[in-house]
Design a protein around this nucleic acid. Structure first.
Lengths: 152, 152
DNA sequence: CCGCTATCGTTGGCCGCGCCAACATTGGCT
DNA sequence: AGCCAATGTTGGCGCGGCCAACGATAGCGG
């Protein structure tokens, strides 16, 4: 009758690319969360610190655009980063609507730490793939991403 | 100095596989949500209906295992499916801890409809990829998934 | 110069998905 | 009989993505 069995995944799911994507992304997200959670941080922090480090001081709106974060979420994230002294928020004298966000030395150190844990996560995530396969994967995902970013 | 520019993505993000994964998964999820949302459904519904259709009546715990859904979330989802008459919940006479969930004809029709919208989403999602590239992608993702599913 | 429109920061809220703890009920095993 | 495992259910948490509204400010066209 019913084998008290191995709980197989339905074919309809196993063969659906979007399912494979969201599932692997969920695994990746869990690994990243664990890594970042260990140091009291999360993805939004890394995105904003990375943008600040690469492009220099910026307004919150710019940070949101570069990191793909909603303006409202940028507010909360910058609040957290300010509380940790990883970032400084100052009004922009040239445009009084804006705040200028600047990364602090402590913020750069934190970014470096997060980068290391992220690198470890990548290794764990891509463990079953060869070097060439990893290249294929990043290429294909990049292709999808650039395509759908244009499409608004 | 500062070009009021095109809000480029930081290199640290662009080159991180887990970032590519979660971003493309976010796009995929948005497409799926839009498709399903148009018919008042969501991902959990499809997962459970698909499992029921392929393996026949099952307990809620089994459904959760097959669809990768937490027991508590299965409860809520089955409630919704019952309210829509897509599924029937009955106590299992052979094991009074369990409920037996059975898909109804209306549920099968709904599953079919959802399958069609899902197929359309896959096309939109994978539009920029050739057939062989799509095969590569699903193969690589499948490899990652089976690997990390074993690792608990 | 005035007024319209756009942008910015901020608040507050919503949804989907993944997960966990607790509890009472029931089954299975020894 | 007694212990342990499984089940369904309730309630809660966190992250990520998104939207609506508002006041303040800038910029632009008439």
């Amino acid at each position: 009758m019913d084998h008290i069995g191995e709980s197989e995944t339905p074919t309809r799911l196993r063969t659906t690319p979007s399912w494979l994507l969201t599932q692997t992304a969920a695994h990746a997200g869990r690994l990243v969360s664990e890594g970042f959670g260990g140091i009291g941080a999360r993805g939004y922090h890394y995105r904003i610190l990375a943008a600040l480090d690469e492009f220099g001081p910026a307004s919150q709106a710019d940070l949101g655009r570069r990191g793909g974060i909603d303006r409202s979420d940028v507010v909360a994230t910058v609040n957290e980063l300010v509380a940790k002294d990883l970032v400084v928020r100052a009004p922009d004298p040239a445009d009084r609507r804006r705040n200028v966000i600047t990364i602090t030395p402590a913020g750069q150190r934190e970014l470096h730490r997060m980068g290391e844990t992220l690198a470890a996560v990548q290794d764990a995530l891509l463990a079953p793939l060869t070097a060439t396969e990893r290249g294929q994967l990043t290429r294909l995902l990049g292709k999808l991403l650039t395509h759908h970013r244009q499409r608004h």
